[in-house]
């Protein structure tokens, strides 16, 4: 693995670093609050993992630009479709694109993603092949197929990040907050009952009892 490849995957290294840090804190710390902090870091790393995999360099937020709407209505059915659901939840937006692609390009992922990589003009095509290729699929209405090419020619800025991972992470964040809140509530009760939040002291007291 060349240095370039190594650095190209920097988001994963950050994720792994955070994950291990969190894990270590969970295992090594006796203080219950610190354990929970570790748990949070651990969860955060996963959130980063998701968000970074949906991100495309230079991609915008997944909002259908006005220019595309005005053009699209007349000639491109699939854009029209997107327009209809423009205010729908992102899940669906993602899905419209995927659908077309899924049908057209089930078997030439590689092509697909090569073109994508080329467009992005980054030197890490190989990495992307392994990691990002499905996103390429999802994110690139522009580059997805020949019959869209004419249509997308006038609109090359439409590279947008996949919104779905971010949306999923909203849910995960909510879950994480709930977990943390519950954990802290439990710690408060433990502190009331035992007078300490050091795990080894608590276990000591239990053993003595």
């Amino acid at each position: 693995m060349s240095t370039e490849q190594f650095l190209g995957l920097y988001n994963y290294w950050i994720v792994i670093f955070l994950m291990m840090t969190g894990f270590y804190i969970v295992i090594a710390r006796n203080n219950l609050v610190k354990t929970i902090i570790g748990l949070n870091i651990f969860q955060i790393s996963v959130i980063l993992l998701y968000v970074s995999m949906g991100k495309i360099s230079g991609g915008t937020a997944p909002i259908v630009p006005p220019s595309m709407v005005s053009h699209g209505h007349a000639d491109v059915p699939h854009v029209a479709h997107a327009d209809n659901h423009a205010d729908a939840r992102p899940h669906d937006l993602h899905s419209d694109e995927t659908k077309d692609l899924a049908h057209d390009h089930q078997d030439d992922h590689d092509n697909e993603h090569d073109s994508h990589a080329a467009q992005e003009s980054r030197g890490t095509a190989e990495d992307h092949k392994e990691t990002d290729s499905p996103d390429a699929l999802v994110n690139h209405p522009v580059s997805d197929s020949d019959h869209h090419a004419a249509d997308s020619a006038h609109d090359e800025q439409l590279t947008y990040s996949n919104p779905l991972p971010s949306v999923l992470m909203l849910t995960a964040i909510v879950v994480g907050i709930a977990t943390t809140a519950l954990a802290l509530a439990l710690i408060v009760r433990i502190r009331e009952d035992y007078g300490t939040i050091e795990e080894d002291e608590i276990l000591e007291m239990d053993r003595a009892a």
Partner: peptide, 14 residues
């Protein structure tokens, strides 16, 4: 009980 729940919470969340 709260301690058992917390232990479960930590492992369960992981």
């Amino acid at each position: 009980a709260p301690l058992a729940a917390l232990q479960y919470l930590i492992l369960g969340t992981i």
